[in-house]
Write a protein that binds this DNA or RNA. Structure first.
Length: 484
DNA sequence: TATGATT
């Protein structure tokens, strides 16, 4: 029954080798146990306790856990910024034995009042070292259970833990955590399974990657918070907001994460704005700017041609009213706007033809500029710090647009640029095929108010680009299943 | 080609 799995046993051995945190004060009453005050066994196990009602604090929880032995430390996890109860706790008993008893008696065995799922009592993640071995699995079919996931991953090694993430009603969120007994096994599973298949009903191929570290999770949270404030330019807005401490922490975190986890960047960002910016940076650094051939598989050369020389576009677009400068912006689009073609494209079916003259103008302009002339521009228009990673957020109802028939080479940046004139954009996202990193030619733009969304629909629905016309409409409401 | 990307 309470037999430890092989890897749990291994983990608990590793435990012995780890440095101990300095002991903190003992916790309250002293049940019998024969331990010196405030001391714990050298091989004590720190337990993670999950599924705790948020209205229970340490003193409420203590009686429940004390029946298995004297508690060395019990801490409810709180959000460091809001102080909010996170619904889980760390628990260390003075005796290792107590931890094992508690885990056996409580884990998945008892559900605390108000909780949908049974309490979780298991060694904390911090107790296991030896590299990442926990995977996040996304794009599962919502019908797939733990068993199904297990079956999928079993061929790659010993699985310690397998949890399908579920909503409050118990329905799957279409993702899971799978913990292998070793990093190598986990890696093998990623290699074999990531993108390997598309589950029936899933919108994209299977995602298998290492689960976020604590640091990344914190970063994500902070990004969400910052994003919710509607902030795209932190340097301007944040110092005056009550969240500036948050923003600073965010930027520190981001620096750390970016510098330490390059492996998390997806490989082959074929024609994302990121890639385009890199090309731009190269040309601005004084290397020949002109004949950079578009990557393979790209259609519609006009748009891409200009992206190779972003620095050169600045003098043109800056001279026109109504163009909002945007870092890494799309020169071709800026040119379109500069020529006044935007306002009611739906009534101008030949816009596509006008794109070409506008574009070739830029090319000629480019050709006349020797490399040396570029350098001052690079100085006067410094490459701004990379924009905060934008969350894929929805705006209020009536503010979210679904856009279809986007050109293949359109990325988030281009989409943003295109809709920028109509209002304050909360988020914009072009959907990419996970496997190929190619645009699926549709995306979302969310404004902060419905009027902007309507204006954008009026102006952009039917906008002809190349052979296609944009379809711009309100995003379908998420949940049509109203009970009444 | 068709409606938001999880912890």
């Amino acid at each position: 029954m309470a037999r430890l799995t092989e890897s749990e046993a291994r983990r608990q051995q590793q435990q012995l080798l780890q440095p101990r945190p300095s002991p903190v004060g003992s916790s309250g009453p002293e049940p019998p146990g024969g331990q010196p005050d405030g001391m714990k066994d050298l091989d004590a196990i720190k337990l993670f306790v999950g599924q705790i009602p948020r209205n229970l604090d340490e003193k409420d929880l203590k009686p429940l856990f004390e029946q298995f032995g004297r508690i060395y430390e019990l801490t409810v996890l709180k959000d460091p910024y809001t102080g909010m109860h996170k619904g889980c706790a760390f628990l260390t008993y003075c005796a290792r034995d107590s931890a094992i008893k508690a885990q056996t008696a409580l884990h998945e065995q008892k559900t605390l009042p108000g909780m949908a799922r049974p309490i979780q009592v298991k060694p904390a993640d911090s107790e296991s070292r030896g590299g990442d071995r926990k995977l996040f699995v996304g794009m599962l079919n919502k019908q797939q259970s733990e068993e199904d996931v297990l079956r999928l991953f079993q061929p790659f090694g010993v699985i310690d833990e397998c949890t399908v993430l579920r909503g409050p009603d118990g329905s799957s969120k279409g993702c899971a955590f799978v913990k292998f007994s070793s990093h190598t096994e986990a890696q093998a599973a990623i290699h074999a399974l990531h993108g390997s298949q598309t589950m029936p009903g899933a919108s994209s191929s299977l995602v298998v990657k290492f689960a976020d570290t604590d640091k990344e999770r914190t970063l994500r949270r902070m990004q969400q918070m910052v994003g919710q404030l509607g902030i795209l330019t932190p340097s301007l807005t944040l110092p005056f907001s009550p969240y500036s401490a948050y923003a600073q922490a965010l930027m520190q975190q981001q620096t750390t994460v970016l510098s330490t986890s390059g492996s998390y960047l997806s490989p082959g960002v074929a024609f994302s704005p990121c890639h385009i910016q890199q090309i731009g940076a190269v040309s601005l650094n004084g290397l020949p700017a002109t004949p950079i051939a578009p990557a393979s598989g790209l259609h519609s050369p006009p748009l891409l041609g200009t992206t190779a020389v972003p620095g050169l576009v600045a003098p043109i677009t800056n001279g026109f009213a109504g163009v909002v400068p945007f870092p890494g912006g799309h020169p071709a689009l800026e040119t379109v706007y500069a020529n006044g073609l935007v306002p009611y494209p739906a009534q101008s079916p030949t816009v596509a033809e006008t794109l070409h003259p506008a574009f070739s103008g830029v090319q000629q302009y480019t050709a006349m500029y020797p490399t040396a002339a570029i350098t001052p521009i690079a100085h006067s228009v410094p490459q701004p710090p990379p924009l905060l990673q934008q969350q894929q957020r929805e705006g209020p109802e009536g503010c979210n647009l679904f856009i279809y028939h986007l050109p293949q080479e359109f990325g988030d940046t281009e989409l943003t640029q295109m809709f920028l004139p109509f209002g304050n954009i909360i988020s914009s996202k072009v959907f990419m095929d996970r496997a190929t990193n190619q645009s699926k030619c549709f995306g979302f733009v969310s404004f902060d108010n419905p009027a902007s969304a309507q204006a954008a629909i009026q102006a952009m629905n039917g906008f002809q680009i190349g052979m296609k016309r944009l379809k711009v409409q309100l995003k379908r409401p998420k949940d049509p299943g109203h009970p009444y």
